[in-house]
């Protein structure tokens, strides 16, 4: 199977105060046509940077190596015109903070019309018709009134629906969703992910879904890639991850999250704080926090190895954890 989006050994370096800093380290990931893949990780792990690299929206002075292909075409190799066309027609993007990405002084209708008319030779009437259809598809009632309103008159949840409508306006093949629900409360989050999920299935859209919530990722994606410090540490089918996580970091994340109906006297924590890619030494990025760390881990960076349905980058993948550290220890 050749993937729709294929990221191959992506590496991104950004200029910093003291020379360049690596923020993405050797990320490889495929998204097949119609497939939904989640990128899960804590703040600063490089999830957004990965999507920005795909969209060629990296900050000034960023250095990229490795290859990103869409339908076989190299994205870093595209010229300006091809890039603009590709962005306008083949991918849609939804951001965490819709308010920051919608021009506050333009009406919702104008914002959506712009997207719809970007590429296709639609008449004004056809375009308007399509905008209305999109708005209804994302669950907005009273379309006409909404279209004449300004972004500040809409709640966060409603605005995120408008963003989704805009992302779908040109009928793309791939949806990039960067924490589309992190700023929303749980009920609105459910609503918005349900809309994304439904429309994606209806239209056979591929999706790269970014979140820091493993359970949320499992609910809407086919595969999950867990990122830590600029690398993918584990990639598994969504169903396999929760019962059978192999990487100590994935296990830690799953255990740290309080769960309804499971009250423990203490939560299991991952000691320390998440580090950035440029802080990683020679060994395993997770070595500073790993309950299973051994000498080998500090010396050698683990290469991804295959496990059922996916891959894991850990020298001791799948081994049981030493009991002494289970249950406690992380808080201090």
């Amino acid at each position: 199977m050749s993937a729709l989006l294929s990221i191959d050994r992506l590496r991104v370096e950004l200029p910093g105060e003291k020379g360049t800093r690596t923020v993405i380290h050797d990320v490889s990931l495929d998204v097949g046509a119609g497939e939904a893949v989640a990128l899960v990780g804590e703040s600063g792990s490089g999830k957004s940077m990965t999507t920005r690299a795909v969209m060629r929206l990296l900050p000034e002075g960023a250095r990229l190596s490795g290859e990103i292909r869409f339908d076989g075409v190299s994205i870093p190799g595209m010229d300006r015109r091809a890039l603009r066309r590709w962005r306008a027609t083949r991918v849609g993007m939804v951001f965490q903070d819709p308010r920051a990405h919608i021009n506050p002084v333009r009406r919702i209708g104008d914002f959506l019309m712009e997207g719809v008319r970007l590429d296709r030779r639609l008449s004004a009437g056809q375009a308007r018709e399509r905008v209305s259809r999109l708005m209804r598809a994302v669950g907005v009632g009273d379309v006409d009134r909404r279209l004449s309103q300004y972004p500040h008159e809409l709640s966060g949840g409603l605005l995120q629906r408008v963003m989704i409508a805009a992302a779908l306006a040109t009928e793309p093949d791939l949806l990039l969703a960067d924490e589309p629900t992190t700023a929303l409360d749980v009920t609105t989050q459910e609503e918005v992910v349900a809309i994304i999920d439904e429309l994606r299935r209806e239209r056979g859209l591929a999706m790269l879904f970014i979140t820091h919530d493993l359970d949320l990722a499992a609910a809407v994606c086919d595969r999950i890639a867990v990122m830590y410090a600029g690398s993918i540490v584990e990639e598994r089918p969504a169903g396999a991850l929760t019962p059978d996580a192999s990487h100590p970091y994935t296990r830690g994340l799953l255990a740290a999250r309080p769960e309804i109906g499971r009250r423990e006297s203490r939560l299991r924590t991952i000691e320390g704080r998440p580090i950035s890619a440029f802080e990683v030494g020679d060994g395993c990025a997770f070595a500073t926090r790993c309950p299973m760390v051994r000498d080998l881990c500090r010396r050698e960076r683990p290469a991804p190895v295959h496990v059922t349905g996916g891959r894991v980058a850990c020298h001791f993948a799948g081994e049981a954890e030493p009991q002494a550290v289970a249950g406690d220890g992380g808080a201090r």
Binding site: V140, T187, E190, I195, D213, A218, A219, E259, I260
Partner: peptide
């Protein structure tokens, strides 16, 4: 509120239009 907390085996559902 309870039903919208993601957990293993959870599927998001649309409960209403706006």
């Amino acid at each position: 509120l309870l039903a919208s907390v993601p957990r293993p085996g959870w599927t998001p559902r649309r409960r209403a239009t706006e």
